[in-house]
Write a protein that binds this DNA or RNA. Structure first.
Lengths: 284, 284
DNA sequence: TCGACCCGATACCGCACGGGTATCGTGTCG
DNA sequence: CGACACGATACCCGTGCGGTATCGGGTCGA
């Protein structure tokens, strides 16, 4: 008789219809039917009468309905009470100044809803730091992309997105459905600042630094460099692009993982909670 | 944040010691530590401070302690409320008049504890009916032994016990560690009343009805027949025996299953609840 | 009267989670 | 300083829950 079963029961009692209750619970009908039956078996009493057009509460079911609703309401209040008692707290989230942002735009409200008392701050890092301030201790948790040096850092993949080369739409490559990295040899690549994580640099550029290529700090700078200077850059294929640019998938480069990352040392419950929210909230 | 986790938390908070709480909860320490950590992660707040000689409540933990205890107490009351609202009910349990009884002696109190309002009646059947009144509709659920005709009857095995031949301790077989059915050819077997389930009869007797063998209705009659008349009978090896009798395992006969059985048609929650109690309560 | 539809029930499958055992890191005390 | 005690971690395995596909049966319109 756990809270989940009681929530199922209340939903069915509200709807008087197993199928509708199932869709309200974002699940399918068979496991809900089974859960109700198991609750009846455990309590030793029929809770619903099954009719051809739905279900109706039995006397035992009606009694449970009141009790269960009260219990669920009380349970819902506990979380708030506890997090409030934990006192003022701050969580600083580092995010790469690119597409990860729009995910953060969904995730941060979700997290604020769970922990209204927590002061959530977002730190936007530039392209030179794939850990978005995590390595430097500037943030508690980071929403960023692979690859980077993961020593001392734990991470959880949220999504895996193929990567492609960004070109102007008048580029000879623009009409290709995909391209191999080898076919990009003679191009002038964007560069990242010195001291950037080597794995990160190797992944997002052509490898050879080229000559007088521009050094970039933001995605906007990167796209503008492509648009105005004819340089070449890489980006995840789901990157929103301004008019005049297209992204051509790179066939022979592994996808880039959108990850949530945290320092392995000094685990903080707030950080773990954010990871859970990200993991749950990401599955659309 | 289910009731189970909260129960774990309350136990640890009571004991201020994960290991002791684990033994109180009849589990081991690692999964309990993990459950506490998961609860902290979900709530986003540390609930305990870990010290070298145990744990202490944080402010957030202290807040949760009061809430959780109240919630658990409220949840514990629900079952009683609902079963009471289900109104007066009766469950008739059929049991074979043999060793199954001592199991019933444990199971019936367990069931009464779960459903105090239910009028539990026990029907003791004689050896001629392996369904203990289930087939005849005399009982709602039966605690009996295989084998019997299971058409229309569902069952759940509680225990599997080897079967042996019951002989006087001055019998030549008495010192054997086991015996094959073939070695019992010329003996005079007990008989069961006419009309008894054929599979049942075949299992519990030597097969050939013999001549003037006694017809038995209870295990006591069976054992006395062995003791006084030198007839031969079979019994589960865990059958308690009076002095002067021993049971020699039959090597080539499959074990007898102690089962709980119910009619497949017309599932009753009370019956299913009894099956659950039997299944849970049997694992000692 | 019969077939199409809608409802809950059942069968079966794959995966995540909760429990287990073995082991580790660390702080305490004789 | 070594032995101990406590919680944390790593890993394995079985159970349970949610999924898809299908069934049984009751209702209603053609």
């Amino acid at each position: 008789m756990d809270l989940r079963s009681l929530g199922y029961f209340v939903a069915v009692a509200d709807e008087r219809h197993v199928g509708r209750a199932a869709s309200r619970l974002h699940m399918t009908q068979p496991p809900l039917s089974r859960a109700i039956r198991q609750l009846e078996d455990e309590l030793g009493a029929a809770l619903f009468d099954r009719t051809p057009k739905g279900v109706t509460l039995t006397p035992a079911g009606a009694a449970l309905y009141g009790e269960a609703a009260a219990l669920l309401k009380q349970a819902a209040r506990i979380r708030g009470r506890v997090t409030a008692a934990a006192g003022a707290a701050t969580l600083t989230i580092g995010t790469l100044a690119d597409a990860a942002e729009h995910v953060g735009g969904r995730l941060v409200p979700l997290f604020r809803e769970r922990h209204p008392h927590v002061d959530v701050r977002v730190h936007e890092a530039d392209l030179s730091d794939p850990t978005a301030g995590l390595r430097a201790g500037l943030v508690d948790v980071a929403l960023t992309r692979t690859p980077f040096d993961t020593t001392g850092i734990g991470s959880q993949v949220l999504r895996s997105v193929p990567v492609g080369v960004v070109v102007r739409d008048d580029d000879p490559l623009a009409r290709r459905r995909s391209v191999a990295a080898a076919g990009l040899g003679g191009r002038r690549w964007v560069r990242l600042p010195d001291g950037t994580d080597p794995a990160w640099t190797a992944y997002w550029t052509g490898g050879a630094p080229g000559d007088a290529a521009p050094v970039l700090r933001t995605v906007q700078e990167c796209l503008q460099a492509v648009l105005w200077n004819g340089t070449t850059a890489l980006a995840p294929v789901d990157q929103p692009l301004p008019a005049g640019l297209v992204v051509v998938p790179l066939a022979d480069r592994p996808p880039s993982d959108l990850v949530v990352a945290w320092p392995k040392a000094g685990r903080s419950p707030l950080v773990r909670s954010f990871v859970q929210v990200a993991w749950a909230g990401y599955r659309d």
